[in-house]
């Protein structure tokens, strides 16, 4: 089946089976590999993208259901100028990642949280991020990254402080 998708502000055409999860359309057909496969059942959050701004599991989203919705992936989160989204910048400043595999999903979830709730408290942060597994367990820095991006803290020396 042919589909025309709106991905990161661009119109992209693909020809795939209708039950193909958006995850594999992005990765295999559109070469947008920043969205990761972790579990295929919506339990890990590594494939988190935005559909019309709402954080969504790409592994659980058949391409046939996307329609005209705006798909934003980690590759489309920074401004067109290349200026990083505040969450991406905070992740860089604080060296959040270890292996980095889950971090695109973490960043997409965090960016959606801050859009809805620009000054989240600790409970808000844990609640919003609970669906995203980090096997390296960088959760301390994920919290710190969100606070930094929200302007609730300053970067200081960098690292995990």
């Amino acid at each position: 089946m042919k589909y025309t998708l709106n991905v990161n502000g661009q119109s992209r055409s693909v020809d795939v089976a209708s039950d193909t999860p958006l995850l594999w359309v992005l990765r295999d057909s559109l070469d947008l590999v920043g969205t990761k496969y972790g579990c295929g059942v919506g339990m890990c959050g590594a494939c988190t993208i935005h559909l019309n701004g709402v954080p969504t599991r790409a592994c659980m989203t058949p391409v046939s259901t996307v329609g005209k919705m705006k798909v934003t992936t980690i590759e489309g989160l920074a401004a067109a100028s290349g200026k990083l989204h505040p969450v991406q910048q905070a992740w860089s400043d604080l060296d959040v990642a270890q292996c980095g595999y889950c971090q695109a999903g973490q960043i997409m979830t965090a960016a959606a949280l801050l859009k809805d709730n620009p000054k989240p408290n600790d409970e808000d942060i844990d609640g919003a991020m609970a669906g995203n597994l980090c096997r390296c367990a960088t959760y301390m820095r994920i919290r710190a990254g969100i606070k930094l991006a929200a302007g609730l803290t300053t970067a200081g020396k960098g690292g995990a402080q």
Binding site: I74, L84, A97, G100
Partner: peptide, 10 residues
């Protein structure tokens, strides 16, 4: 990490 720019932009 050196790879951070790539990690945060996918």
């Amino acid at each position: 990490q050196f790879d951070t720019p790539k990690i945060v932009t996918g």
